[in-house]
Amino acid sequence: MRQYLAALKFSFKEQLSNRFAFGLLLVFVPLWYWVLGMITPSDAVAFRFRPTGAMLQANGHNLVLITAGLNVLSMILGFMFFHSAHRSLDFDRRLTRAGLDRFGFMMAKASALAVTTGLIALYTTAVLIGFWHHPHSLVELWLGFWMLSLIYASIGLLLGLLVNNELVGFFIVIMVSMMDTFLQNPIGNPAANKAFLSYLPSYSSMQLSVAGGFTDRFAGSQLLLGLAWFAGILLVALSVFYLRTQRKSSVLQTPEGATHRPSAPAANQA
């Protein structure tokens, strides 16, 4: 428990020290809402609402604010968690070598990710109120933003553990985010109501946010779908973390003596 709490505390500290990401949030969240809101008229736009199967006639200005929020969250959180995972991998490995329990460490990282994304999604929802005064359910809108934040933070974490080149990682985050969130937007993409979009990571978040913005219906199935995306990607990311912090040889430490065979038996035979 002591190790979990220490890892949780320092994981938070690590995220909060990313001043550049917080600067981006402070500047670009309101800016993106303002720019996209300003250029998009309030004309009704048809949006396929999956929980009922019906076509919603949504206010185009308000709909584009949702896609703006999702777009900016996916990029900044993807970048933020990619950056921290990429930079701290060697340090995390050193900590696990020192004896930090890997399972507790992973739980601490997941907890820090969940809380950080929840707070950032809350901030993004709060700023949205300045541009859209009366969405139906702010809680559901926040849940949609949070789901997307969880998914993209996990994608960032996974890429940070897999991709060695920082620039390559940033480009992957940006390209995936752009393609995913742009395709969900019926104003920018005339084919936004096609069924294949339901296989993209931000689909459930978009549906949940639209439910919160325009209807009184709680889209529980979309919440579960979003959670499944998050859980799946996080599980892969944590598995990669587990493997990448694994000792390269089996070490048995006893007061009398420890023997580690640095070579695998198969390698010896070869």
Binding site: R97, K248, S249, V251, E256, G257, H260, P262, S263, A267
Partner: peptide
Amino acid sequence: KILAGELQASAGRVTVSGS
């Protein structure tokens, strides 16, 4: 790195008493 257990060797053995 091999002595520290940071890197896997292709063959051989390391014996360490203690940490």
